[in-house]
């Protein structure tokens, strides 16, 4: 009897350790798929409001290592020339009509970009998932895997996440973001992924608020180029405030 108890205990310990490693491995795979040195892309963001109104934005973004980004809105005309500079965790917005720059900080970082469902913090967060969360496998099928993430530090935007991963592409296909108390806040669904050489990358996604009925944001990458040459002085405030 004693032997059986020891055997079960050892098996459970082994399984737990094995699952933890597997979840970590999957996170590493996602991070590897999504990570890049430099990229330039044009994207279209559609924000659907509960009152039925929709606003479409188009922006061009230059990114280096997830830590530096310069984003410029080209559409609609009202937003044309508005630029966002992300630099080592800080975010500034330049408003061309007023020729003024505003640093987004504190609680404002958790508000939606252009009233949409992607927050400024979503844009500025550059740490890898594995660094911020403890991961465990929730369930698994032949084609998908669900990983539960629990934040190591509860001050992050989403203390809990549930990620459904496509085993073939090693990309998340669905992501449920939850707040303190594991209350779901929003849900992201990947609608399309494309191959860029050996890399698979989500190019169309929709994020839906679970707190406000009828509110969602769709993001479509219209053009993406990885490994582009970016001048060293591009991610500076001078560049942000440069007039065309």
């Amino acid at each position: 009897m004693k032997r059986i108890v020891i055997l079960i205990t050892l098996t459970l310990c082994f399984l737990t350790e094995s699952q933890g490693q597997t979840a970590k491995e999957w996170l590493d795979r996602i991070d590897a798929n999504m990570a890049f040195m430099t990229a330039e892309f044009t994207a279209k963001m559609t924000v659907h409001h509960p009152n039925g109104q929709e606003r479409m934005f188009r922006f061009v973004s230059k990114v280096r290592e997830d830590k530096f980004a310069l984003m410029e809105f080209v559409d609609p005309p009202r937003e044309r020339g508005t630029r966002y500079l992300k630099r080592e965790g800080n975010l500034w917005i330049y408003f061309p009509r007023q020729d003024r720059t505003l640093q987004i900080q504190g609680h404002m970082l958790r508000e939606g970009v252009q009233g949409g469902d992607f927050s400024y913090e979503d844009l500025t967060e550059s740490r890898e998932l594995e660094e911020m969360y403890n991961a465990s496998i929730e369930s698994e099928t032949d084609t998908t895997l669900i990983i539960f993430l629990e934040a190591k530090d509860m001050t992050v935007s989403y203390p809990f996440q549930l990620i459904t991963i496509d085993k073939v592409s090693s990309l998340p296909v669905q992501q449920l973001y939850s707040g303190i108390g594991n209350t779901p806040i929003k849900e992201m669904i990947v609608l399309e992924t494309l191959n860029f050489g050996k890399r698979k990358f989500p190019t169309k996604m929709e994020i839906r608020s679970l707190l406000v009925d009828g509110k969602w944001t769709k993001l479509e990458f219209e053009a993406i180029e990885f490994g582009v040459e970016l001048p060293p002085d591009i991610f500076t405030k001078e560049s942000l405030e440069k007039k065309h």
């Binding site: 924000v47 917005i93 009509r97 007023q98 003024r100 508000e111 970009v113 252009q114 009233g115």
Partner: peptide, 16 residues
């Protein structure tokens, strides 16, 4: 006076 508030769509509305 530079003022930033939320606009009717929840985005940032700057005014000078």
């Amino acid at each position: 006076l530079f003022i930033v508030s939320h606009d009717a769509f929840g985005g940032l509305g700057p005014g000078l």
